[in-house]
Every structure is written in C-alpha cells, then in structure tokens.
Amino acid sequence: MADAFNLWSDWPRSVEIAANAVLFYILIVVMVRIVGKRTTSQLNNFDWIINVAVGSLAASGILLRNVASLDAVIAIAVLAACQYLTTHLVQRHPAIAKVVKAEPTLLTHKGRFLRDAMRRTRISEQEIKMALRRNGITEPAGANWVVLETNGELTVIPRQDVDWDGAEALSDVRAPADIAD
C-alpha cells in the first residue's frame, strides 16, 4: 500500500530527472532547428504521429528508470532523420507523396454538400457550417467551395465568379468527376 502513493523518490533520482529533462529539451530544440519549422507547424497526419512519438520517447527518457537516456536520444534522432528523409522523398516522388500524405478533399461545391466526400472524411454538415460562420458566411451558397485540408482544417473559398477548372489553387483537391458549374 505504501508503494501506491509515490510522491517523491529521493534527491539523486530528482537530480537525474532534472538533468534528463534539460537534455531532452536541448535535443528537441536542436531537432526542430535541424528538421525545420514543419515539425511545429500545423500538422498533417504524418507530422502529428512523429511529434507524438518524439514526446513519448522524451518522456520515457526523462522519467522511466528502465529506459536509458541515450537509447531515447537515439530513437528520437532516428525518427527526426526518418521524417527529414521522408519529406525530401515526398517532394521529389509523387508516388511516395500519395502514400504518405493525405490529399485535400472537396466537401461543398457552390452551396451543395458533397455527401459522399463528407461520409468518407467523417465531416458533418454542422462542422462545415461552423467553418462558414467562422469566415463570415451565413449560408452554404455563400461559398464556392469548402475543402478539408491535409492538416484537418476546413478552408472556405467565398463565392466568386470562377469555375472549378479555373481555380488553379484547387488543382490538387480530390473532387467528384461530375462537378458542374
């Protein structure tokens, strides 16, 4: 019963935890500087998974007695190198990009909800309406398009006189083949 409530271990363990925390703080700052701003920007699925794994490894290296600090440092360095390499491969090889990255998806077209895309991405009509309101649009017809981006955000493109084929910024967005303007 006494082991169940462990408020404090001892001074040497507390010093070890503090030293490990400083070590991992410095490591993560250096890693972010080397790997780049992408590590902390608005994350796509791939970047989010890497950040969660790095956080878990850092916590393990700081707190867990059975995980050597150097082991956790090596694991974090390998993940950072893998992320760096993968982002370079994604930029150079579209086939790899297709496997690693999600693609933006069209959810509304000129006020019409695209129900198949909404079901596939698990985005509700209420979530789309919230994005419209956040952009000062009071009805779905007030937007040409709503797009689910690769980082999970909803982008609202206000109503304007442009057709789908003329919207260059939307060329990489997954849309139904039968979109008619």
Rank of each mutant, 00 (worst) to 15 (best):
M1T: 09
S9T: 12
P12H: 07
A18Q: 00
A19Y: 12
N20H: 14
N20E: 02
A21N: 10
A21S: 15
V22K: 00
L23A: 04
I26V: 15
I26W: 06
L27V: 05
V29A: 12
V30Q: 11
M31W: 05
M31V: 14
V32A: 12
V35C: 04
G36D: 03
G36N: 04
T39S: 12
Q42H: 02
Q42F: 09
N45G: 06
F46A: 08
D47L: 00
W48V: 09
I49T: 06
V54L: 02
S56W: 00
A58K: 06
A59W: 00
A59L: 07
I62C: 05
I62P: 03
R65I: 04
V67W: 02
L70C: 07
I74C: 03
A75G: 11
I76Q: 06
A77V: 14
L79P: 07
L79H: 06
C82W: 09
Q83K: 10
Q83V: 09
T86G: 11
T86Y: 10
T86F: 11
T86C: 14
K101S: 14
P104C: 08
H109M: 11
K110L: 06
D116A: 14
M118F: 07
T121Y: 12
R122D: 11
E127C: 02
I128R: 04
M130T: 07
L132M: 08
R134Y: 10
R134C: 13
E149W: 00
T150Y: 02
G152R: 03
L154C: 04
I157M: 05
Q160E: 15
Q160W: 10
D161N: 10
V162F: 04
W164P: 01
A167R: 00
D172W: 08
V173S: 04
A175D: 01
D178I: 04
